[in-house]
Simulated scan of single mutants.
Amino acid sequence: MTHILFDFFGTLVDYDDGHARTPVKSAAMASLPADEFLVRWDAEWMAWEARCAAAHREFSMLDVAGSFLPDASPADLAAFVDVYIAEWNAGVRYLPGLPALLSSLSQRFRLAVVSNTHEPDLVPGHLSAMGVAGLFDAVVTSVEVGVRKPAPSIYEVALSRLGIPASAAVFVGDNPSADYFGPRALGMRSLLIDPAARHASVPPGDRLSSVFDLPSVLA
């Protein structure tokens, strides 16, 4: 094994799932009170999820914004997305000690990120802000590929970009379908972050309490 492929959200950072908790500025840009904005935004978001879920197709923030604000100009839509992402990012929390962990792992393995996300710059931006972007050989995102994990093609794109067979990689993440069973179906070893041991279908030896367990598991 030569490579570690990481999920991002819930694995390399903690975050609040769902919409931005206090979308004050983005609600104002939509000319709506914050409470009404959340109801309408969630309804639009779930409509996109319903259309894309069966085929694991990915949609972008601009897709949702365009149907949510159909009369807005491209520039206004881009500005709206920037504001909403900034408000959503308030729920992202960096893990103390993670840069040192990744730096140590990079001495033994090549590293990559394979993440579901609706915004192309979101994961690379966080990696840069964390000071670890240079440790990764590749960052592959669902919005870039057009499908989300666990669609096989997103893992295949990552393996092709890295120039390795599936047997050379271990996948680490916190979602059983996307980060454990999906990669395993292609022949990768997988490890699931499952601190509460909620997923009995995953063998105990393949579970981690956090990403910081990796050095001992891979030793």
Rank of each mutant, 00 (worst) to 15 (best):
M1G: 13
M1A: 15
H3P: 03
H3L: 07
I4T: 14
L5D: 01
F8S: 14
L12K: 13
L12H: 14
V13H: 09
Y15C: 04
Y15K: 08
D16M: 02
D16W: 00
G18R: 07
A20T: 05
R21C: 10
R21Q: 15
P23E: 01
P23S: 01
K25N: 04
S26T: 09
A27I: 05
P33V: 14
F37G: 02
L38K: 13
V39S: 12
R40V: 10
W41Q: 11
M46R: 14
M46S: 09
A47L: 06
E49D: 12
E49I: 10
R51T: 04
A55R: 08
M61S: 07
L62D: 12
L62W: 05
D63P: 02
V64L: 13
V64G: 08
P70C: 12
S73T: 02
P74D: 02
P74A: 03
D76A: 15
L77T: 08
A78F: 15
D82G: 15
V83I: 09
I85P: 00
I85N: 05
A86C: 04
A86Q: 04
E87P: 01
E87A: 03
G91A: 05
P96S: 07
G97I: 05
L98A: 06
L98G: 08
L98N: 04
P99I: 14
P99R: 12
S103F: 12
S104W: 11
S104H: 11
S106Q: 11
Q107G: 14
R108F: 11
R108W: 10
R110H: 15
S115A: 11
E119V: 05
P120G: 15
P120Y: 05
P120W: 04
G125I: 13
H126F: 02
S128D: 01
M130V: 04
V132L: 05
A133P: 08
L135A: 11
L135Q: 12
D137C: 12
A138M: 10
V140M: 09
V140E: 10
V143P: 02
V143Q: 08
K149I: 10
A151G: 05
A151P: 05
A151W: 07
P152Q: 11
I154G: 11
L159A: 03
R161Q: 15
P165H: 03
A166S: 08
S167H: 03
A168D: 13
V170S: 13
G173N: 10
G173W: 06
G173K: 10
D174R: 03
N175F: 00
S177P: 03
D179S: 11
A185P: 03
L186A: 11
G187K: 06
M188S: 09
M188D: 09
R189S: 04
L191R: 13
I193M: 10
D194R: 12
P195F: 09
A196Y: 01
A197Y: 03
R198F: 00
S201L: 07
S201V: 06
V202R: 09
P204N: 04
D206F: 02
D206L: 06
L208K: 01
S209P: 02
S209R: 06
V211K: 14
P215V: 06
V217A: 14
V217I: 14
A219R: 12
